[in-house]
Design a protein around this nucleic acid. Structure first.
Lengths: 240, 240
DNA sequence: CGATCCGTTGATTAGACTCAAGTTTAGTGG
DNA sequence: CCACTAAACTTGAGTCTAATCAACGGATCG
């Protein structure tokens, strides 16, 4: 690319923020350079491997994190070990329950992820000062609420086949947001086990349904994880 | 009662607001008398019968409503008619998706309800001016998100017996919030059909599970709707 | 090369759904 | 007051979907 984005006083921005996508679409987009500079003094970037736990259910929260790359899964478990994935977070979502002393879910890196860790106190102080920031955080919470309710329909009222189709369709829309109803190609960010925990099914049932979609030509799969959907409209119909 | 609550400038409050519980616990609690007075000019109280539709999915929203009494159920339906209840709202919840042009759920009075209807524009303008008001709205959204995620676990991972027990426990905690683990008595705000749609079950399965709880002495029922739980701790154990 | 992890496939079983009565309650009108 | 009806709920019998149990295939790693 020849042209460079021209930000006013770009040089005054913290170095790390200059190329950060959360600064535009994420919550940091609500901040002016001055506020960003102040915040950046207490943030740090970290990389986490797939499988690492980022936050434990019922444990005190000391920080929020901006998801910069990768996928984070939010889960809850029953006492006897049954597990349910209750949400997925992609860049540039903010990870962490605002204004709660302790987490109500556990968070785990589903893929390798990059995070921008923000101390709890720093973000909450800034929210007090900045209504636009608090507004962005609220808008994300409302979006997550909409998504949670969509998934309640899937969990409560769809068949196994429809659940798996819905999951694939959701991932396709999220990861490869080219125009809808075209083809899509992507890597599944979740294992079969995670997908099962997301859909309220067993691993075996997920596997069977994926095999069936493959046999019917709705999807193509190489190497378990890499999926191509030649016709998204056809997949959409199977979502119930 | 001999003593009367002393509000500063109580006489300046809108008449309707003076005895309104939403003014203390609900979103109106964030407003000063002046703001309340301005808002009250555009609000009106309405009563709706059980079964009346309050808001339709995918329809434009023209107003929010404070729930003052009764229970509102939020539902989503698939094209073929399968229905899922995705939330219940009690006093003093605010009904209506903030900052959205159209609703993403339909809302129906589950019992007879009293509402305080607030024009969309009026509340949103006030939220722009009043950070505390917006904060309260956000806190409610976050609470609803927590509840939705709790129910995702129930929908995805619990057996029919555990689902029904969880539902009864939730209602008991909500309606009769005397100290936990004592006895509780209440009227179910939902029909068997609504309960089934809430739990992702059929009417028959709900009925059978309720009969079983009754046979086991966990609950007592008169007239279908009126429930007594002699030992909440025992019910809690059955929630999985 | 064996071990382990992740995923697939098959056979059997169990839990919830469907279909089909029957019961209780509330409401209506004679 | 009582017959009649409709709606909500319960109960039973049979079926089917997804879970369970079990074996196997392919990739990765020491």
């Amino acid at each position: 690319m020849q042209t460079v984005r021209k930000d006013i006083h770009n040089s005054e921005l913290p170095l790390l923020c200059q190329s950060c996508e959360a600064r535009h679409q994420g919550v940091c987009g609500a901040l002016n350079p001055e506020q960003l500079l102040a915040l950046a003094r207490s943030t740090r970037r970290v990389r986490r491997q797939a499988g690492e736990e980022l936050m434990a259910d019922a444990m005190p929260i000391s920080s929020y994190s901006n998801v910069l790359r990768g996928v984070v899964k939010l889960t809850k478990v029953l006492e006897d070990g049954r597990q349910q994935v209750v949400g997925l977070q992609f860049a540039p979502d903010l990870l962490g329950r605002p204004f709660a002393a302790e987490s109500r879910v556990s968070a785990e890196a589903a893929s390798e992820v990059d995070l921008c860790v923000i101390p709890k106190a720093a973000l909450e102080a800034l929210m007090q000062d900045s209504a636009p920031l608090e507004h962005r955080v609220m808008m994300q919470a409302l979006r997550e609420l909409d998504e949670a309710r969509d998934w309640m329909v899937t969990l409560g009222r769809k068949t196994a086949a429809e659940k798996v189709a819905s999951f694939l369709f959701m991932i396709a829309s999220h990861i490869d947001p080219t125009d809808e109803f075209e083809a899509a190609t992507f890597d599944l960010p979740l294992s079969r086990s995670d997908i099962a925990d997301f859909l309220g099914l067993t691993i075996e049932t997920v596997s069977r349904q994926i095999s069936k979609l493959k046999a019917d030509g709705v999807i193509e799969i190489v190497n378990y994880r890499h999926v191509t959907v030649p016709d998204l409209a056809r997949l959409r119909v199977l979502c119930g």
